[in-house]
């Protein structure tokens, strides 16, 4: 179930990269590289769902973004925000994969990658990288 939640998160952020990427005044090449990282994560999650006998759900036909993206700053803020919102989903996977070290190691790396991408788009460093609107788990 939480693998599907992470997959849904990856679908959503890939959509956001498409919208925000078009508004970036610079570093579009970086955005494309980071979008590729999300595609790889999506593919990994789909593969594991199938391996476990579950059918991966499809992306939603459309997504409502939390903010309107009209310019570079808003695009960066959106991507930073959405990268942080993926962290709770992967943190849940760290617990769910407790009996599968390779998968758990991957989930740990995903948290790190999301935190670094969020920081790249302008999020401040945190003792426990986490979206502002959610209570921290620590």
């Amino acid at each position: 179930m939480s693998m599907q939640a992470a997959l849904d998160g990856e679908y959503a952020i890939m959509y956001a990269y498409g919208v925000a990427g078009a508004r970036l005044a610079a570093q579009r090449d970086v955005a494309l590289t980071l979008l590729e990282e999300h595609r790889a994560s999506r593919d990994q999650l789909r593969q594991w769902l199938l391996a476990d006998g579950d059918q991966p759900g499809p992306p939603a036909p459309a997504y409502t973004l939390p903010t309107t993206v009209t310019a570079d700053t808003a695009a960066r803020d959106l991507l930073a925000d959405l990268e942080l919102r993926l962290i709770p989903l992967y943190t849940q996977l760290v617990a769910d994969f407790a009996d599968d070290q390779p998968r758990q190691r991957w989930a740990v790396r995903q948290i790190r990658a999301c935190a670094l991408r969020a920081q790249f788009w302008g999020a401040a460093g945190q003792a426990f990288p986490w979206p502002e609107e959610l209570p921290t788990p620590v």
């Binding site: 760290v94 758990q104 989930a107 999301c114 935190a115």
Partner: peptide, 23 residues
């Protein structure tokens, strides 16, 4: 994190690892 004895500690260690990468 991947050697932690319980899931909660694994989660905390994973978040700390991410924070230290940000540092």
């Amino acid at each position: 994190a991947t050697n932690a004895e319980d899931s909660e500690r694994a989660q905390i260690l994973a978040l700390i690892a991410a924070s230290e990468a940000q540092h």
